[in-house]
Write a protein that binds this DNA or RNA. Sequence first.
DNA 1: CGGCTACTTGAAGGATTTCAACGTAGGTGG
DNA 2: CCACCTACGTTGAAATCCTTCAAGTAGCCG
Lengths: 249, 249
Amino acid sequence: MPDTSPLIKRLSLFAPLSDGDVTKLKQLEGQTRRVPPRTEVVRQGDPVRNCLAVRRGWSVRAKLMADGRRQITDLVLPGDLVGLYADVLPVADQTVITNTAVEFAEFPPDAVAALFFEHPRLAAAFAWTAAREQAILAEKVTCLGRRTAYERVAHFLLEVFERLRVVGLTEDNRFTLPISQEAIADTLGLSPVHVNRMLARLRQEGAIRIDGTLVELLDLTMLKRAADYDELYLLHRRLPAPLERRLAA
Amino acid sequence: MPDTSPLIKRLSLFAPLSDGDVTKLKQLEGQTRRVPPRTEVVRQGDPVRNCLAVRRGWSVRAKLMADGRRQITDLVLPGDLVGLYADVLPVADQTVITNTAVEFAEFPPDAVAALFFEHPRLAAAFAWTAAREQAILAEKVTCLGRRTAYERVAHFLLEVFERLRVVGLTEDNRFTLPISQEAIADTLGLSPVHVNRMLARLRQEGAIRIDGTLVELLDLTMLKRAADYDELYLLHRRLPAPLERRLAA
DNA sequence: CGGCTACTTGAAGGATTTCAACGTAGGTGG
DNA sequence: CCACCTACGTTGAAATCCTTCAAGTAGCCG
């Protein structure tokens, strides 16, 4: 299947999906919507309506402060789900803005609750997604709290690379990074100028190469050492055996 | 009920619980275990066995880096749940260490999944808890990425105050803060020395008063302004009406 | 070509860390 | 009961990392 959606790719990593599961996912992702770059898909403070499943394009989830500062809390990449908790939240606590043209599917939040009854394996996969999202957030807290600017930039590149890899959006050690250095700065809690300097340093050290939006990681070992990187938190591993047995029943 | 557990207190804030729900919670919390201060309750990298429901005492959830740096990602206070995702995770991505003597109940992770069938309202309440935890993490990312040390300390005090308040652990504007300034530093991504200075400044400005482990917030308005604080993210509001209607059915 | 946006680089300033020293309270053993 | 010890809090001074300000370059699109 060359047309496999990134979501299906990503969830298959967690557990082999049955035909029924795949059919259900295709149904959820059936109707897609396209929005241009710099569109607010979800607005902080608004009531949340739908869950989104991103098929193409980059967005960011961000918190906006009263005085204009902003912090990007997570990237939203193809295969990612937005608003899994929509059902249970009064209003969105964050804004989601597209960075490129983005294509995504929408479905009602109670469809997620319904999964628990009809598609327990998918429900587990969605729970796993939520757990992964939380682990990514915790890792980001660690980055911002305890890593230097240099380490943060290296860590950022490695995380993006690995997250794109599992949805098939890398080639060798290359990927496209369609966001500005200012956006990276808002992700890493740094100034744009300093992000630029750290990228320059990584470039000079031969760890990376950048050509426009194309990034190549030339020395993964060195990057991982520099970032104190352990990708365990991304949970790109098979699910626990006990759960597997239970779901197989 | 003077004996109401902090968990029941907290979840009641989300939705009025039925007698059956309360009975179920009491059953989950039935057997408690006590551990002394500075005990590793969950160890980063170990397989996760159980979910925990904390009844008394303070713990922290932390990420430990190879070179000894640590980042506290969240406080674990009475009424908090630990390891909601245990079922779906291969290993713990964080360590949980008690700071004081702690009393908590343990229950198997699949008990959470079972809730969805027998106690949908509790299941929703647990989902809400998970959503709240994630919102707290996102807010922490914003703190670490975009707030100054002064703002972070003010924000920290306000968050702790509000979280303790809903489980009945405050009196007027006072609460006990049984953790060291070093632990606060590891929470806020600062050095212990600087935390001390910021606390001193808040004290001089008349915003707070500290006597041992007792903290009093003297000027909430000023603190909230200083921290750019909006406690919306703590989700201490009633659940959305549509969900309420569905659960009432 | 002009104007926009993003990237780049240098220099100065500021926020926070590190280093160091001292004070204080509680706990333990002589 | 006192002396010691340790952990924690406090304060000053120097060093560092990162930001801010400023100016210049490169690419892109009308």
